[in-house]
Design a protein around this nucleic acid. Sequence first.
DNA 1: CGAAACCCCGACTATTATACTCCGAAATGC
DNA 2: GCATTTCGGAGTATAATAGTCGGGGTTTCG
Lengths: 140, 140
Amino acid sequence: MQLSRRADYGIRLLLELSMLPEGSRTSTEEIANKQRIPITFLSKIARQLAQAGLVRAYPGLGGGLELGRDPRSLTMLDAIQALEGPIAIARCTLHPHECPRSAFCPMHQVWKKMEAQMVDELSRITFDQLAQAETRAIAG
Amino acid sequence: MQLSRRADYGIRLLLELSMLPEGSRTSTEEIANKQRIPITFLSKIARQLAQAGLVRAYPGLGGGLELGRDPRSLTMLDAIQALEGPIAIARCTLHPHECPRSAFCPMHQVWKKMEAQMVDELSRITFDQLAQAETRAIAG
DNA sequence: CGAAACCCCGACTATTATACTCCGAAATGC
DNA sequence: GCATTTCGGAGTATAATAGTCGGGGTTTCG
């Protein structure tokens, strides 16, 4: 029941990009150094986020990464779904047909409800908010 | 972000016990057969639940398992904590001192809030409720 | 007493998921 | 053409999960 490092790193990458001045870029390496993340791993994660459209990547000299979407509408839910796939506490909510108990299992609804709550909560949190909170926390 | 099989099996074991008529017992093997769970694994899980006090185990002929607590006050939270440890989405909420970002990291609060919601939700769900729901679902 | 039906315990193994690493290739800008 | 940067995929290492095994102990019953 824990977030993977992949997700942790990916979120930190997105947060770094969100804190960048509008229109500017950084390289994967810079973020890796700043956040103490193995660069080869982070670059793989960056690619994954690029494929999901959350990040735009430019190869070549002067290239780098920038946010692929407006940080005011980019949510934690988007990030986690791109990095870890759908929010699913139990296998049975994703693949109900694979569980012989699904017809009458009372846990099914429990998980469903919790997942819905998580989705709801995560979708309220934007990277713009996070970036501002972090900026304030560092400044203050 | 998924519940382990261990937790899944353990919950099913507790649910089986909760559906038993007051004061009666079953063996680990019966539950394993009914729920299609490898018996050696389930017996290990049963021990764990016994050590946590959620289950009482009696060796010997006519022995077996019974619930260690009143199903009306035994919650899903108790079960998951006994089976998987504390609810912690991110490492940093459990061990904030290990994270150099903890002082200013805006995600910390996000995770804390979500964890609190999960704890709250899970602690509302008792095995008595679940057992009744399943009984109804099978009967109906 | 002895057998059968139970659980206890720890060590061991297998499998899978995670967390990386590596390297050649392609794009870009000077 | 060279430095910088991402791309893509294959490969490896480590750790967590899932499960097995064998010996030992209790309890009940005949």
